[in-house]
C-alpha cells in the first residue's frame, strides 16, 4: 500500500502548485462526501489529498454591490442555507443544494464537489446551469472561466485540465421579476438519487417571460442546458401551449439509462412533467420579486 499524504495549504497558489506537482495520484478534498466514500469502498486510492478548505476564497460566500453572488467552490450547503440573503435571491439554487443528502451531509457537501464529481444526477448542477452560473478555475496556467454546463463531459468526467482547481461560482445579479426553482423526482421522500432533476430560472415582465434558462439532470450522460425548452417559454405567458412545447423539448433532450430507479420511458415522461411544475414555482416566485 502506498502511503497517503494530506496537505492543507492556506493559499490557492500553494494548492495549485501541490496539486499539479502530485499529478494524477492527487485528489482535491472539499466536503469529502463523495471522495471519502470512494476511498472507503476501495474504488479510489489517492497518493495525495489537497484539502482546500483552509483557503478563505474557497469557502467564502459574497454578494457584490450589483447583487450578484460569488460562492466559494467548497462552501457547504449548510453555510449557504445559513447565509442571510443567498436563499432569497437564489431560492432554486439553494433548494437544489439543500437536497443533497442528510443534514449531516449538508454540513460538508459543496456545490464544487457536486459538479467536479461529475454525476449526471448531481442535484445542484441543473439549478446552477439554469442560474447561468460561471465557474472560475485556477491551474498551473492561471485562471479561466467556464460556464457550468460546459464542465461535465461524461459520467465522472469534467473539462477541468490536469492540475486545475475549481475556485468559485459567479451568479449574475437578479433582475426584478426574476426567480428560480428546482425539483427532482426520487422514489423516496428523502436521501435518494434523482431520477430526473429540473432547474428553471425565469424573468417575467407584465406576465410575459422575457428570459428563461432550463437545466435538466439525471436523464443523459451529463446535465443538460435545454435551450429549446427556454425558447418555448420566452415570449409566452406560460400558457398551456408554451408549457407543452417546453415539456416536449425536455423529453426530447433525454437520453437516459434504464435502471432500478426509473425506466427510459418513465424518465422521459417525468422530465416534461417536472418542467411544468418547476416553471410554475419559478414564475410564482418571480412575481413576488418586484
Amino acid at each position: 500500500m502506498t502511503e497517503l499524504r494530506y496537505l492543507a495549504p492556506n493559499t490557492l497558489d500553494e494548492a495549485v502548485g501541490a496539486f499539479a506537482a502530485a499529478g494524477s495520484a492527487a485528489r482535491i478534498l472539499a466536503g469529502g462526501t463523495d471522495l471519502l466514500v470512494q476511498m472507503r469502498s476501495g474504488a479510489l486510492k489517492p497518493g495525495v489529498i489537497v484539502d482546500i478548505k483552509k483557503i478563505p476564497e474557497m469557502t467564502a460566500i459574497e454578494q457584490g454591490a450589483d447583487g450578484g453572488f460569488r460562492v466559494g467552490a467548497a462552501a457547504s450547503g449548510m453555510a449557504l442555507a445559513e447565509h442571510r440573503s443567498f436563499g432569497k435571491v437564489w431560492p432554486g439554487v439553494l433548494e437544489a443544494i439543500n437536497l443533497i443528502g442528510s443534514k449531516q451531509v449538508q454540513g460538508r457537501a459543496s456545490a464544487g464537489g457536486n459538479l467536479c464529481n461529475g454525476s449526471p444526477a448531481g442535484d445542484s448542477v441543473p439549478a446552477l446551469v439554469a442560474a447561468g452560473a460561471i465557474v472560475t478555475v485556477q491551474g498551473p496556467n492561471g485562471r479561466r472561466e467556464i460556464k457550468v454546463e460546459d464542465v461535465p463531459t461524461a459520467p465522472g468526467r469534467t473539462s477541468l485540465k490536469p492540475g486545475e482547481i475549481m475556485v468559485s461560482f459567479t451568479l449574475p445579479p437578479r433582475a426584478a421579476g426574476s426567480s428560480d426553482a428546482y425539483l427532482r423526482m426520487i422514489p423516496r421522500t428523502e436521501m435518494d438519487i434523482a431520477v430526473v432533476g429540473v432547474g428553471v430560472n425565469l424573468t417575467l415582465k407584465d406576465g410575459v417571460v422575457t428570459a428563461a434558462r432550463v437545466g435538466l439532470g439525471a436523464v443523459a450522460p451529463t446535465v443538460l442546458l435545454v435551450q429549446d425548452a427556454a425558447r418555448a417559454l420566452i415570449g409566452s405567458k406560460l400558457d398551456d401551449a408554451a408549457l407543452a412545447k417546453a415539456a416536449a423539448a425536455c423529453s426530447a433532450a433525454c437520453r437516459p439509462i434504464d435502471d432500478k430507479r426509473g425506466t427510459i420511458a418513465y424518465r422521459t415522461k417525468v422530465a416534461g412533467v417536472l418542467l411544468r411544475r418547476t416553471a410554475a414555482i419559478a414564475a410564482q416566485r418571480a412575481a413576488q420579486n418586484k
Binding site: 494530506y6 462526501t33 471519502l36 484539502d51 478548505k53 442528510s102 449531516q104 454540513g107 460538508r108
Partner: peptide, 13 residues
Amino acid sequence: DRLICSCLMLAVE
C-alpha cells in the same frame, strides 16, 4: 458546531 458524519471526515482535518 455543525452536524456532520464523522465517517466522512478525515481525522487530520
